[in-house]
Amino acid sequence: MAQYHLEMKVNGNSVALDIDPGLRLLDVLRDCLHLTGTKEGCSEGECGACSVILDGELVDSCLVFAPQASGREVITIEGVARNGELDYLQQAFLDAGAVQCGYCTPGMILAAKVLLDRNPHPTRQEISKAISGNICRCTGYAKMVQGVELAAASKEAKEGAVRA
């Protein structure tokens, strides 16, 4: 079995490790780096539970060989809160009751984060499209869309207050 020396950035920290190149980014995150917030669902890109942000793009980490991520920057759900303070999206999901069993939540939050980073005021349709690669088997989609709307509004209100 070949070995591969992987260097990448995860949640702002540089990591370097020697791995089997057949491992997926998902395996490295969960099993080597113990970042178990990223979930394994279908393992074929249908469910989005393993979504992470790779160089600013939302990807399924079950569809990426770990060496493909070398030299790149990964953000997982563990990298979303800052200094112990929840991100707008995390707080809004709690406030909107958008979390049921929680399995899809990390992927949903990251999908929504990529959307809001590009488009701070999305329409409902844009939100639905942004989370269309994430399946919630509790079917709590309506609350999640509300959660994203709430996050967008609270972020704007806070940033408005700071500007004023």
């Binding site: 890109g45 989005g48 793009e57 990807v59 399924d60 569809l63 999908a111 990529v114 269309s132 690669g133």
Partner: peptide, 9 residues
């Protein structure tokens, strides 16, 4: 194609 995640890859 696929989903946002698949289109990024």
């Amino acid at each position: 194609v696929g989903s946002p995640q698949i289109r990024s890859l």
